Amino acid sequence: MHIMLYDAHTHLHEFLDSRIAEFVREIMIAAVSDDYPSSRRTIDLSNNYENIVPCVGIHPWNVDKVGLDELRQVEKLLSEAKCIGEVGLDRRFVPQTFNRQVEFFQTFVSWARDYDLPLNIHAPDAWRDVLEMVRRADVDRVLFHWYTGPLNLIQELRDYGYYISINAAIKIQEKSKAVAKEAPLDMILLESDGPYEYRGITLEPPMVKDAARIIAEIKGISVEDLWDVVSSNFSRLFNL
């Protein structure tokens, strides 16, 4: 039996077209963007290949490199997008631009509400800041990507109907194993964040298979049952 796999967060625009064609044969991918040019490429890829959910946005690491005019360019792509991302706040890696990150993220949160699109969010050491901003704006569909935040925040995220994604790095990252154990199945998605390099591993979409095996074992269910749940979570989040 052929099982469709799901990757809720990958920078597909960074891969060669030949690799993308290979990935999307068996994986439904939420493709995130980092700025206007990558957002444009992500939209183009989604027009060329099935199984791509295009997300447009400006990564918090880039907010000091772009002007507000780039926000207006990204907004013009929203009619073709299925999601806003990768957007968010980051106190861990770029704390020096935090105020500007908030300014940009506030715009993305407003768009999510106004255009009824989900948010694919980056939030290292800013999990609660992000939660408070999306709650205040009444945004319904939110994914906290590569969740490594406080375990005691997970139930609160679930109470709001939000999702977390567990990265394929779970095979070497103990915090991700703890998150997988704590998080209820109905809020879990899997991701690669490819082609990000983590502790010597270049992450790629097919690695969600290994992540699924590990999480299924932690949860005491079959891999097939795990993919069933992930499939329905993915469909609800992205309104497929």
Rank of each mutant, 00 (worst) to 15 (best):
R135S: 10
R236M: 06
N99L: 14
S235M: 14
I218T: 08
D35W: 07
Y49P: 01
V94I: 15
R135N: 08
R100H: 04
D17V: 11
Q106K: 15
M4P: 00
N99V: 09
G67S: 15
N47A: 12
L237V: 09
S176W: 03
H59M: 05
S232H: 12
V179N: 04
N233D: 08
K82M: 14
N62I: 07
L71R: 08
S39G: 05
M133P: 00
P118S: 12
E80W: 10
E182P: 00
A8F: 04
K76T: 14
I27T: 08
I58L: 07
L190Q: 05
H145I: 05
E224Y: 11
P37F: 13
N99A: 13
T202S: 09
H9N: 11
G200D: 04
T10G: 02
D7I: 09
L226S: 02
D138V: 05
K177H: 05
E174Y: 10
P95L: 12
K82T: 09
T148S: 13
L117H: 06
V94N: 09
F108I: 08
E22W: 07
G88F: 08
Q106W: 04
S39C: 09
L151V: 13
D125R: 15
L16Q: 13
I188T: 07
D125C: 10
A183W: 03
V32A: 09
Y162Q: 03
